[in-house]
Write a protein that binds this DNA or RNA. Structure first.
Length: 570
RNA sequence: GCGCGUGUAGCUCAGUUGGAUAGAGCGUCGCCCUCCGGAGGCGAAGGUCGCAGGUUCGAAUCCUGCCACGCGCGCCA
């Protein structure tokens, strides 16, 4: 039992003793100001109403009933409107460092429990162009969320979904074809809705080199299909290289086109009760019709998504004069059925907030199926836009003209670690300004440099002393040596690491950890400047080496969770 | 018009799910220094938490109404 758990248990006992019942919810937290002690509780204030007594009076009463010697508490005092502040015996607090040393690389990590697997879907960019800065944010967020869950004992499968069947791909193929015609002597005419980037021309040129006879076949349907496949393959290859450079790897790539394949319902969407040879999208439509969730109007088939919180009903199947095919919405629902049927009882989708309109729709579709998929399935983590600042001004993004900042650009400019950190520093809900100049600066103004430097400094101490940090397990250390305020504050921060990871995972918010690492790095630097480790008398040096080792472990583990390296020297 | 999100120091942003005097980095100003890495260290100034109400012991946080900005609202994906 940690000190905090012991205090919590004692508070619960004391509350019962003064007549508050034995199911009180005890909140114990770090005080806003370290001067208030190591832990604080507002318990007396929350009990005031039920007990009809003054908070400070209750606080006094609670303290009188507390037996805190075993919890390492040196003092418990009433403060402010009725807070109870606890001060730990310094030697007891410092003992938390021993935990860190003992658990080492596993400190903050919860072993996998149960046999469930969560699927995290992210990036899912159409193969119609390079990955831009928005996809980069998704890549960083999705991977960090996956890592957070893994550290919290959840098995995770990372998935990339390709919309490889829709109109966008047709536009891509037609755009490449336009360049091929141009190479054959025709004027360049990018079709309506087509793509304008230089990469389209490059794809066409490469294709032309491989097919010297192309000019004669432009109007041949089989040839056009060949162009489409070539373009998709080329762009997928480009995206994969970008992701590789970013250090993001997926377990599965799910193709939208597979949902249209005959027999796909039986293999991937069994809960719909598929018959032989039926595709997943057909089975989805059939199940929705059978559930009575649809109606026909103007020759089209609508789904009553309004019955599940959407603001208007959605077309599932277009009328005959519009082509009679399914809207994007049907494969989207079918795709999520396959997640459920593949055994993923938890699904998290990381997407740009421009997709927020689809959230209610997909969930409505899944609900309407009536196959037992819960209401909040899947979870969504939506993020706002990214703007890039360089040389003091915003780098303009013009997708239309085909010029925009790509993930590859950012990686080339500032490196993988800085790109990841800058993406993860802000919560997804807020608009992100990516300051390229700051990200590449080699000084402690740069948050990622500051954090990595703190780690490198800890490594440097051991290097300088000719010591192997891995041999420090805290045994024989006199923890009472660590009594300076800067040391106790640092210790508290290090000990909190597992809680920070757990909460960041619970809320799917990696920025909490990014912020924690920056704050902790600040404490490390402050301690480092104020208190020398090497050259002290033996007991003090040993204790400080243990603390340095613990700081090194926490920084390294924290960076690991975010997918960032922890160098031993900068 | 409707929906989602955002609005906190000059700038970029946190704020532990309702707690104490609202924090960090940068920028500004002042002082110090070259010691395990000086590309530093210490300190100060700087905020009507968009505005107005409400809820209660207590609100940046919850509720309501406005204002501003972003995104979305197609038989596009």
């Amino acid at each position: 039992m940690t000190g905090a758990d012991a205090i919590r248990a004692e508070l619960r006992r004391a509350a019962a003793a003064i007549g508050a019942g034995d199911d009180v919810d005890v909140v114990l937290q770090r005080p806003s100001d370290p001067a208030f002690g190591d832990w604080t509780t507002n318990l007396a204030m929350t009990l005031a109403r039920a007990l009809r007594r003054k908070p400070r009076e209750i606080a006094d009463d609670l303290i009188a009933h507390l037996q805190l010697a075993d919890a390492g508490v040196r003092a418990a005092e009433v403060a402010g409107a009725g807070f109870i502040n606890f001060r730990l015996d310094p030697a007891f607090a410092a003992r938390g460092v021993a935990d860190v040393l003992r658990q080492d690389a596993a400190f903050g990590r919860v072993p996998p429990a149960g046999d469930g697997v969560a699927v995290v879907e992210f990036v899912s960019a159409n193969p119609t162009g390079p990955l831009h800065v928005g996809h980069g944010r998704q890549a960083a967020l999705g991977d960090a969320i996956s890592r957070l869950l893994e550290w919290s004992g959840v098995r995770v499968s990372r998935e990339f979904y390709y919309n490889d069947g829709g109109a966008q791909i047709a536009n891509l193929a037609r755009s490449v074809l336009a360049h091929l015609r141009h190479l054959g002597g025709a004027a360049l005419e990018i079709p309506e809705g087509g793509y304008h980037g230089d990469y389209i021309r490059e794809i066409a040129e490469r294709f032309a080199e491989e097919h010297p006879d192309h000019a004669a076949r432009h109007d041949d349907a089989a040839f056009q299909e060949e162009v489409r496949r070539h373009a998709v393959a080329a762009l997928r290859q480009e995206q994969n290289l970008d992701l590789q450079a970013f250090g993001v790897a997926f377990d599965t790539y799910y193709l939208e086109s597979s949902l249209y394949a005959p027999g796909s319902a039986a293999s991937a969407a069994r809960s719909l009760g598929a018959s032989d040879g039926e595709s997943a999208v057909d089975a989805t439509v059939r199940a929705l019709v059978r559930a009575g969730a649809t109606y026909e109007q103007d020759g089209a088939l609508f789904l009553r998504t309004t019955a599940y919180g959407d603001d208007k009903d959605r077309v599932m199947k277009r009328s005959a004069e519009k082509g009679g095919d399914y809207t994007y919405f049907v494969p989207d629902v079918a795709y999520h059925v396959t997640k459920w049927d593949r055994g993923f009882r938890r699904a998290i989708n990381v997407q740009g907030s421009d997709h927020h309109g689809t959230v209610a729709r997909v969930r409505a579709g899944l609900q309407a199926l009536g196959v037992g998929i819960p209401q909040g399935y899947p979870d969504y983590v939506l993020h706002q836009m990214v703007t890039v600042m360089r040389g003091g001004e915003e780098v303009k993004i013009s997708k239309r003209a085909g010029s925009y900042v790509t993930v590859r650009d950012l990686l080339d400019w500032v490196g993988r670690d800085a790109v990841r950190y800058f993406y993860l520093q802000r919560k997804g809900d807020s608009h992100l300004v990516f300051d390229v100049d700051l990200a590449r600066s080699q000084s402690e103004e740069n948050p990622i440099y500051r954090i990595q430097m703190a780690h490198a400094r800890m490594s440097g101490i051991f290097r300088q002393g000719g010591l192997d940090p891995a041999t420090f397990d805290g045994s024989g250390v006199d923890w009472a040596q660590l009594a300076a305020p800067a040391e106790l504050e640092l210790i508290n921060a290090l000990v909190d690491f597992p809680r920070v990871v757990a909460q960041a995972a619970e809320h799917l918010e990696p920025h909490r950890l990014a912020q924690y690492l920056l704050d902790t790095a600040g404490l490390v630097h402050g301690w480092y400047h104020k208190h020398h480790v090497l050259g002290q008398e033996a007991p003090l040096q040993e204790a400080r080496l243990a603390l340095a080792r613990a700081a090194q472990i926490v920084l390294r583990n924290g960076l690991e969770v975010l997918g960032i390296s922890a160098p031993d020297r900068m």
